[in-house]
Design a protein around this nucleic acid. Structure first.
Lengths: 143, 143
DNA sequence: CTGTATCCTTAGGGATACTG
DNA sequence: CAGTATCCCTAAGGATACAG
């Protein structure tokens, strides 16, 4: 169901994976907002429709960026989490956040986050991955 | 003509600026392929239509990411170049290239480029900016 | 709660022709 | 060469209802 890729360019490939108006927001929710459930994503500020969300999650799963887990009955519900391939998108998102923080006055990026990124980017990325893996989902992206 | 922004999230802002199927390819052409002219962009592998290209260039200009220059008559033509704000998108593109190089076998990223990025990312970004400003437009992104 | 299923609307995009 | 102007069309997205 994936659209035919338009070129062998790495930028083009990345665009094919997450170059639409919704996918990166879902990844943001996973990476920075600790969201794991369908309804969590739906409640995000941007108000994604349920059919669109379902489709994006399926696409992300089939791209190997997200894992879908069906919890035991008594646990309730379905959860999504990033694979390593998904966590490896953190640098892309971080650079986008830094760029927006620099050029958009209205952007609600955490100044501490940006300062940390500039001071020691590798340490920040390690921290993000560690935090993600610890499943604590601190909200880095917005105050 | 810019669509209303959907949120104050920095990721959302970035998406509003270049989160479509074409804009980042134009920026790629400027940043890594030394392209400066309308027809250059049109000749890119992905074959953008002239009306779409014109619209994206206008949007990029009005976002302050690209500057439009009308050369003297004897110089011929119109050229586009990145502003500082546009050059500052290099980190985003670089991370996308690294990610694609890691996860897509078909991607035609220059191994030297990726190695340089991993070895000393800041040096690479400086080199990109310097090369860009020197207007040499070496082709970093693809072999 | 996690999705499907429909229906409908619109914006984005392709093709093509044309202009200064 | 650097775009406009049209026309057309489809895929992407919103609303809503509902199923397991």
């Amino acid at each position: 169901m994936a659209a035919a890729r338009r070129s062998d360019c790495p930028i083009g490939f990345a665009l094919d994976c997450f170059g639409d108006r919704w996918t990166l927001l879902v990844i943001r929710d996973l990476l920075f907002k600790g969201k794991r459930r369908f309804q969590d994503f739906r409640r995000s500020e941007e108000r994604i429709a349920s059919n669109i969300l379902a489709e994006r999650l399926r696409a992300l799963e089939s791209a190997g960026i997200v894992d879908r887990h069906v919890a035991a009955r008594n646990e309730g519900g379905v959860t999504y989490c990033l694979t390593t391939k998904g966590i490896d998108l953190a640098p892309v998102l971080v650079e986008m956040i830094i760029w927006s923080a620099q050029y958009d006055a209205r952007t609600a990026a955490d100044p501490e986050f940006v300062a940390a990124a500039r001071a020691d980017r590798n340490a920040l990325l390690d921290a993000i991955a560690a935090t993600y893996r610890a499943d604590q989902g601190r909200d880095f992206a917005t105050s």
